[in-house]
Every structure is written in structure tokens, then in C-alpha cells.
């Protein structure tokens, strides 16, 4: 097997094994209801993690995601509460704002040659602050259109439901996979992760690609914010704190190298499912503290970081012997 598939394979093996373990204990976990809920509950995180995958593949990081989700939620709540604008128009407006927000961060990273960490950290505070400016309170969204959208679902055999937002996440993953592996932009993202200087020498439009990557991450964070507001029917400026870290975790567990240049969008999907599965197991168990989610995820993350180091080491040695 090619070394680049190793982390992804490991992730899939771990997921299948842990799913089998859970199913052995609670056969109900195999039901389509649980699977449908797994998708719905993790939809906003999954959508944001697709954007994060592109950012990390290019060798960058985006810390602003959680704040952008909160901003989007508050923005929608405030707009729908105070104006007669249709939710769909509000969605378009907020996506435009978050996409531009990401693009500006990308432009700063590229043109001012600043580390993505610090630029998006600033973006994180800025977006969270903007949410507070709009409203300090948690605002419920009571627009009837929200009810219509939440009632949309595709019924699976066995009673499970693929809700609108769960389906949207699957669609975003499918498009993300297509973009990563079947477009020139996707290859350019990998190229940046392989080495910006070399990529530039080979004619990759570094500036345009960087801006597009962060714009995409902003767009998907905005979309994730819309999904989150549908999911919670509210907007609150303190919501989604630390979601960027959950997204990074999903990306890394999904087998993408934090240094960039290697990994798969599909891996991130498995990473999301593993996190969701642990959560589901704890719900089924009922007696475990939900902090066990964090503990298990932490351990998994350690294992994956070690595994990646190991794979890098092994492939280096192979190359030396080649």
C-alpha cells in the first residue's frame, strides 16, 4: 500500500473496530436512527471541518471558525428578529460576509507574510467581538421557515432520518472530496502544503490559492453557522467556543498531516464519525461523564500524532533504501 493511504486506513480500521465494539455492547447502535442522529448532531462540526481540512492541507491553520459560527448564528437571529428579510436572503448575506472575512485573512497571510496562526487568532477575537456587538443575549429564532426546514428529511428504512442539515454535511463532504482531488485548485492546495517556495517556482498562483483557501474556510464556517442556528434555533455569542479545535482534531484523527501536503477530506469525515461515535456511546451508557469524550479524543489524538511521526519516519527510511 502507498504510504499516503496508511493514516486514512488506520482511521477507518479504528472506526470500524470501535463501532463493532459499541455494537457488541449495544446492538441498537446499528440502527439507522442512531446513524441519522450521528449525522445531524455533527453536521455543523463536519461542515466546518471540511474547510479546516483544506487549510491544514495547505500548511495553514484557521482558528476563527468557532467565532465565525457564533457570529453567523447571532447575525441570523438579530436579522430575522428585527427585519422582514427572508431567511434565504439572510443566509446569502451572511455567507458573503464570512467568505469575505476569510478572504481578507488569506490576503493578510499572503501579502503581509504573516503566520496563519496569528492572523486567524485575530480573526477569532474579531468575529467573537462582532457577535457580542450584535447581541449579548441568546436570541431564539422563531421564523416559520426554520420550522419548515427542520421538518425536511429523508426517511431511511428502519425509521432513521437524514435531516436537511445531515444531508447538507454529506453533500459538503462530497463536494470537498471532488475539489481536493479533481480540480487544479485542489492540487494547488496540496502543492502549497508541500512547500510554498517550490510551489511558486512551479507556477502555482500562491497568492490566489491562499486567499481562496481561507475564503473557502470562511464560507464553510458561515454555512456551518447556518446549520448550527437551524440545529439550535437560536443565536448566542458564546456558542461554539472551541469548535475550531474540535475541527482540527477531526482533521488530524482523519489522517491529515498538521504540517500540510498530505491527507484526505474523506479522512476528516471518519474523524467526525469517530468523535460522534464516542459521544453516542457515552449517551448509550448513561452513567459515564461526558468528559470521557474529551479524554478518549485526547488519547486518540496522541495516538494519531505518534502514528504520523512513525509513518513519516518509516517512509523516510524506505526512501533512503530506495
Amino acid at each position: 500500500m502507498k504510504p499516503k493511504y496508511l493514516p486514512l486506513t488506520a482511521t477507518i480500521v479504528i472506526f470500524v473496530l470501535s463501532y463493532a465494539l459499541c455494537a457488541a455492547q449495544y446492538p441498537n447502535i446499528l440502527s439507522t436512527r442512531v446513524i441519522g442522529n450521528l449525522l445531524t448532531d455533527n453536521a455543523f462540526l463536519g461542515i466546518a471541518a471540511v474547510g479546516m481540512t483544506f487549510v491544514i492541507l495547505s500548511g495553514g491553520i484557521d482558528l476563527s471558525i468557532g467565532s465565525v459560527i457564533a457570529f453567523t448564528g447571532v447575525f441570523l437571529a438579530v436579522v430575522l428578529d428585527n427585519t422582514a428579510i427572508h431567511p434565504l436572503a439572510a443566509f446569502a448575506l451572511v455567507l458573503l460576509i464570512t467568505t469575505l472575512f476569510g478572504a481578507v485573512m488569506g490576503a493578510i497571510i499572503h501579502y503581509l507574510e504573516m503566520p496563519a496562526f496569528i492572523v486567524t487568532l485575530a480573526g477569532m477575537f474579531l468575529a467573537r467581538g462582532m457577535a457580542f456587538v450584535l447581541s449579548i443575549d441568546s436570541i431564539a429564532i422563531k421564523h416559520p421557515f426554520y420550522g419548515t426546514m427542520k421538518a425536511l428529511y429523508y426517511k431511511l428504512p428502519g425509521g432513521g432520518r437524514i435531516t436537511l442539515i445531515g444531508g447538507l454535511m454529506l453533500l459538503v463532504f462530497a463536494i470537498g472530496i471532488l475539489i481536493a482531488h479533481r480540480t487544479r485548485f485542489g492540487t494547488d492546495v496540496y502543492a502549497l502544503g508541500g512547500g510554498t517556495a517550490t510551489a511558486k517556482l512551479m507556477g502555482v498562483p500562491v497568492g490566489r490559492t491562499t486567499i481562496l483557501i481561507y475564503a473557502l474556510s470562511g464560507l464553510l464556517a458561515g454555512l456551518s453557522g447556518i446549520v448550527f442556528s437551524l440545529y439550535t434555533s437560536a443565536g448566542y455569542s458564546l456558542a461554539a467556543v472551541g469548535v475550531e479545535l474540535d475541527a482540527i482534531t477531526a482533521v488530524v484523527i482523519g489522517g491529515t498531516l498538521l504540517t500540510g501536503g498530505s491527507g484526505f477530506v474523506a479522512g476528516t469525515f471518519i474523524g467526525i464519525l469517530i468523535q460522534g461515535l464516542i459521544q453516542t456511546y457515552i449517551t448509550f451508557d448513561g452513567s459515564l461523564s461526558s468528559w470521557w469524550t474529551k479524554i478518549l479524543i485526547g488519547l486518540l489524538l496522541f495516538v494519531f500524532i505518534l502514528m504520523q511521526k512513525g509513518i513519516v519516519y518509516v517512509s523516510r527510511r524506505e526512501q533512503r533504501h530506495a
Binding site: 471532488l178 479533481r182 480540480t183 487544479r184 494547488d188 496540496y190 512551479m202 507556477g203 501536503g261
Partner: peptide, 24 residues
């Protein structure tokens, strides 16, 4: 001066990959 993480083919055709229906 090539990208070690891309495939040989991607390195050869980076920026000018053959496309069909807009996709590589």
C-alpha cells in the same frame, strides 16, 4: 525543485492538468 508530496504525474502536469467537464 519539485513537490515531494504530490504524485509524479501531478508534478509533471501541475498547473496544466488535462481537464474534462471542468474537473481534472
Amino acid at each position: 525543485n519539485l513537490l515531494p508530496n504530490l504524485t509524479v504525474a501531478e508534478n509533471l502536469f501541475l498547473g496544466r492538468q488535462p481537464r474534462r467537464l471542468g474537473l481534472v
